[in-house]
């Protein structure tokens, strides 16, 4: 199983919970012998999307910004059957670090429109069964942020994967062993949790 793991933690380990969740994900993936390409986005040079759509109409499938690190993410994305996103919840959404990489992932889509569940979406440029897991961290319980996050991930799943999404939120001081246990029960990682 090939997976791409986008770690949207802030720079310099400022979010220990995110770091712990990243370790738990890697341990779980390792146990399943998955081939994971992990990216610590805060340490990478990824520029913001220009909104020029060159990746659709000028250099199909490639971003026009060629002097940064995003192409490695796109390459891994193209071959992945699992996408794993990790982020401190930022107003219920993704951190700027993670979002920058996702904004620049639109070359992995085609410009045209298709209908999914009665809504309009873009087709995948690299179609394959692809599932999405998004893990959010919070300093403390915040049901409103969690609700927005789940909604966002559900919408992302329709646009980035084959529509299946798993959302997990770790809030407070969750130990590594507890994270590993919860990840292990998720169907995304072969578990049987409902």
């Amino acid at each position: 199983m090939k997976a791409v793991f986008l770690k949207g933690s802030p720079p310099a380990g400022r979010d220990p919970l995110c770091n712990r969740a990243a370790a738990a994900v890697m341990a779980r993936a390792h146990a399943l012998s998955w081939e994971v390409k992990a990216f610590a986005l805060a340490t990478m040079n990824i520029k913001a999307c220009r909104g020029c759509f060159s990746c659709w109409t000028r250099t199909p499938g490639r971003c026009i910004i060629a002097d940064d690190d995003q192409e490695a993410v796109l390459r891994a994305w193209a071959g992945a059957e699992r996408i794993i996103l990790l982020t401190p919840l930022t107003f219920g959404g993704y951190s700027p670090e993670l979002k920058k990489a996702l904004d620049r992932a639109i070359p992995a889509l085609l410009p045209f429109f298709i209908r999914i569940n009665g809504e309009t979406h873009h087709p995948q440029r690299y179609p394959r069964p692809r599932r999405l897991l998004a893990i959010g961290t919070l300093k403390g319980p915040d049901s409103e942020s969690e609700e927005v996050f789940r909604d966002l991930v559900g919408r992302n799943a329709l646009n980035m994967s084959d529509g299946e999404a798993t959302t997990m939120v770790f809030s407070g001081d969750v130990p590594l062993s507890e994270m590993e246990k919860r990840l292990g029960t998720e169907p995304f990682f072969g578990g049987t949790a409902q």
């Binding site: 979002k99 920058k100 966002l152 646009n159």
Partner: peptide
Amino acid sequence: YVDQLPAP
């Protein structure tokens, strides 16, 4: 952008 606000 990708279902929410642009990164910047």
